[in-house]
């Protein structure tokens, strides 16, 4: 016990000393930037990012600041999980729907679904683009499930449904866990 208290005292002394040395030369260190899950949201996502009206939306990103920038949605829907806490929310905007899921009490982007051809991906694909356009923009590194072409990057998937050589559905999906 005695030994422990000594260790503690020395620890405290050490911390005290170094604390005094702390020159404020780096005031902008992002030390206060602790959010719930400890991750740093300031980093640009390494996954697919959707952009509309100058607002960038990445998967698994906290949704509140995005909604603030996008403004009120045309329609809003929320679905409770059966018997589990956490709401799945759906915001409908012109051209796309934004889906969220709840993780550690924070609503995060779970997917973005294109509704019409008024929106396009950053790489220029929109509904009714051709399969060739998709392949040209995104390459051959996809996984195909029936008519669904799935590209994966970082924590996101970008899925194109191709019917008769035409894109009929585009969805960004967050990879969770």
């Amino acid at each position: 016990m005695k030994k422990i208290s000594i260790i503690l005292i020395i620890l405290i002394m050490l911390t005290a000393c170094s604390g005094g040395n702390n020159t404020p030369s780096t005031p902008n260190e992002p030390v206060d930037n602790l959010n719930e899950n400890g991750s740093d949201d300031n980093l640009v996502s390494d996954g697919f990012v959707f952009e509309t009206n100058g607002v960038e939306i990445a998967m698994n990103q906290e949704v509140a600041p995005i909604i603030e920038k996008l403004g009120d949605s045309k329609e809003y829907f929320e679905a409770e999980h059966c018997a589990l806490p956490g709401l799945e929310k759906t915001y409908t905007y012109n051209g796309f729907e934004l889906y969220t899921y709840e993780k550690n009490g924070v609503d995060s982007v779970s997917s973005i679904l294109f509704l019409d051809d008024s929106v396009k991906t950053k790489e220029g694909i929109y509904l009714y683009s051709s399969l060739d356009d998709v392949l040209e923009a995104y390459g051959d590194d996809y996984e195909q499930k029936l008519d669904l072409y799935i590209y994966e990057r970082g924590d996101s998937q970008l899925c194109f449904l191709i019917e008769d050589g035409e894109v009929t559905s585009i969805e960004y999906i967050a990879i969770t866990e």
Binding site: F77, T92, L113, K145, L146, D147, L148, L161, S169, E171
Partner: peptide
């Protein structure tokens, strides 16, 4: 009920 989202297109 206020609004209900339409079903997403499914590949299968």
């Amino acid at each position: 009920v206020t609004s209900i989202p339409k079903g997403k297109k499914l590949p299968d």
